[in-house]
Nucleic acid binder design. Structure first.
Length: 324
DNA sequence: ACCTTATTCTATCGGAT
DNA sequence: ATCCGGTAGAATAAGGT
């Protein structure tokens, strides 16, 4: 019932109808059963899709490179400098002059210095936004920031939107299109890539343009940039759902088999991968005589009971033929 | 720009264990 | 009493003309 589950499911639904290709799969095969290795979505583990063996974990330490001995000390430490951000047209690397008429100590400036500072500000502004391209980016990024915070999209997502927009500009996709629509479309795509999509009408409410231009801009963007919105696979959900449902490994393994079987019969085409994963788990539990109700699965996976029912019936049908 | 198509969701009810 | 299965109608997204 978490937001992440819900949104991930939505993103699946959106991408599944169009894209049935394989997801990114690790080159190596599983040492135990020579199955396929697939990166888990929310941990950094790589797991075998057949036997569930955890093959590798991301062993990079992404924590700070210093250490501290107390909480206060830890709080005082910080990485040096502001992070580089894609959300500013100059990546946040240029100097900024404060808007306050005060010096470093917080004292008011003398009239003479004030004049100089104001003059500097003017030139700084001219320097930072010297071309129409940069004004364009400033405008667009401002919009992305505004809409992103209005929709509660996290920082990394907004940055992705900004990167996408910059790509669009670099590829000359902008001429003839509105900055607003493109910026909105970029953010829309970014949200989907981050697995936290908002629907188009939702975007239309915070954007200054209507739903249709956004839709058109997004399609254009997606086609021209080849955005490759994460093509999803039911197996990407299986382990997470299995953990959330606290089923034993036997059930999970069975669910994998069922999914494999269904995939060979092209049952996954056009269907929500999340729904398939949930249904496979339910089916697996049934076959193992595990007590697991449709309602429970539906609640934990945020897939409707109806969908689970329809999918699991189909899955069992082909699975029964396969095994009999 | 409009319309069609496929899927899923919510709401609801009847039957079975 | 709870769980399962089926149906109807609405919403949503993608694609074609």
């Amino acid at each position: 019932m978490t937001e992440s589950l819900r949104t991930a499911r939505d993103s699946e639904r959106q991408s599944s109808q169009r894209e049935t290709g394989a997801t990114a799969v690790d080159q190596r095969a599983c040492p135990e059963c020579s199955g396929t290795i697939r990166p888990d979505q929310d941990t950094s583990e790589r797991t075998c899709t057949d036997c569930g063996l955890v093959v590798a974990e991301d062993d990079l330490d992404r924590g700070p490179e210093w250490r501290t001995h107390s909480a206060e000390e830890s709080a005082q430490r910080s990485r040096v400098g502001a992070p580089v951000t894609a959300l500013q047209h100059d990546h946040g690397l240029s100097t900024t002059i404060s808007w306050q008429d005060r010096d470093a100590n917080g004292n008011a400036l003398s009239p003479e210095k004030l004049r100089r500072i104001r003059r500097l500000r003017t030139w700084d502004e001219r320097f930072r936004t010297k071309s129409s391209l940069e004004r364009n980016l400033r405008h667009a990024f401002g919009e992305i920031e505004r809409m992103g915070s209005a929709l509660g999209l996290p920082e990394p997502c907004r940055e992705t939107g900004a990167v996408t927009y910059r790509q669009a500009v670099d590829d000359d996709l902008l001429p003839g299109r509105s900055i607003e629509a493109m910026a909105t479309a970029s953010l829309y795509g970014a949200a989907r890539q981050h697995g936290i999509p908002r629907s188009l009408p939702t975007f239309a409410t915070v954007s200054r343009v209507d739903k249709l231009p956004i839709q058109r801009a997004y399609r254009y963007l997606s086609r021209e940039l080849g955005l490759g919105i994460a093509p999803a696979h039911p197996l990407d959900y299986l382990h997470r759902y299995a953990s959330a449902l606290e089923v034993n490994t036997e059930v999970e393994q069975l669910a994998r088999d069922i999914l494999d079987c269904g995939e060979q019969q092209d049952l996954h085409v056009g269907r929500s991968p999340a729904g398939l994963a949930a249904a496979a788990l339910y089916a697996g539990a049934q076959l193992c005589n595990e007590h697991l109700t449709q309602a429970t699965v539906s609640d934990t996976t945020d897939v409707s009971r109806l969908t689970i029912r329809n999918r699991y019936q189909e899955l069992l049908e082909v699975y029964g033929e396969e095994t009999s």
